[in-house]
């Protein structure tokens, strides 16, 4: 099955990930700009990072037949430094011209502070001005509800097209607001602290698959890109067809990311689906 890994921090992963992802059907990854594990001191460090993910990573992925796309942004954690953030934002439009840059992300809140909000708004404005897609991170654990509410409040006062905004890391307690307001939402499969594959399938059963993207968010912490395949297996085991799975794990990312013409991978349809034995039905 062809799979798109829509939220993947390649710079923190080894080539072995690419090899195994290629062997398990991944045809493309999209890499948002994120926190490196420490706060950077210089705007140039961000710019080199953007260069790495927009120029070098596509070549590394290509060795395994995987397309690599990326996003540029000042992440929510480092947005706490507005002076540095504005310096980075000044240079960011240069990267919108790169052939694999899809938009601005991941932006948003970490601790939902005034500084974070200032930089979040500035980046949304920049995206609107340059007609870029927007990828929004929502906070972790106990900060998630407050940060998600504030995210929606901020967006309501800005002239954004909800169809072009992906609000990521939603869980059972934060999914309804973003969906009801017309945004795309992302489920992030992450050991312990975010959503598990089974819970992601539960939410698909409850909310349907429209405007939903599922990703594993592999990064430098305890994370596993193959939770995506685990999720697909559980989704199929609950009786969903191969085409259903393709709609969620390949075609939905195409539909959202494809709003930027640089993402030229198109939704696919299975011509003839074999009637497979349902998983777990063997005696």
């Amino acid at each position: 099955m062809q799979i798109i890994q829509p939220h993947y921090h390649a710079i923190a992963r080894t080539a072995q990930d690419y090899e195994r992802m290629a062997m398990s059907g991944v045809v493309a990854v999209a890499e948002p700009a994120f926190w490196a594990g420490f706060d950077r001191d210089y705007p140039e460090t961000f710019l080199d990072y953007f260069k790495q993910i927009s120029e070098f990573e596509p070549t590394r992925a290509a060795d395994y037949g995987i397309r690599h796309f990326c996003w540029v942004a000042v992440n929510p954690k480092e947005a706490e430094n507005p002076v540095l953030s504005h310096q980075v934002l000044e240079k960011m439009p240069e990267f919108f011209e790169k052939p694999t840059v899809l938009g601005i992300g991941e932006i948003g809140f970490h601790k939902t502070t005034k500084n974070e909000e200032e930089i979040f708004e500035a980046q949304v404005e920049l995206a609107i001005k340059h007609d870029q897609l927007i990828l929004i991170h929502t906070p972790h654990l106990q900060d998630k509800v407050r940060g998600t509410k504030r995210t929606l409040e901020v967006l309501r006062h800005m002239n954004v097209d909800p169809e072009k905004v992906w609000i990521d890391h939603v869980e059972e307690h934060t999914i309804r607001g973003p969906l009801e307001e017309g945004y795309w939402v992302g489920f992030t499969l992450y050991p312990i602290t975010k959503c598990t594959p089974k819970r992601a399938v539960d939410m698909l059963e409850i909310y349907g698959r429209e405007r939903i993207i599922i990703n594993s968010s592999a990064d430098w912490g305890p994370s596993d890109p193959f939770t995506l395949q685990e999720c697909i297996m559980d989704y199929r085991a609950r009786g969903n067809s191969l085409q259903d799975a393709i709609e969620v794990f390949h075609n939905n990312p195409c539909r959202f990311l494809g709003q930027n013409p640089k993402f030229d991978i198109k939704p696919i349809r299975v011509q003839q689906e074999e009637v497979a034995q349902p998983l777990g039905s063997a005696t």
Binding site: I192, T193, K198, D202
Partner: peptide, 16 residues
């Protein structure tokens, strides 16, 4: 956080 995760997983299973 392990405990939190396991409790949510149990809750989700009962909901399911």
């Amino acid at each position: 956080l392990d405990v939190r995760c396991m409790l949510v997983e149990i809750a989700a299973t009962l909901d399911r």
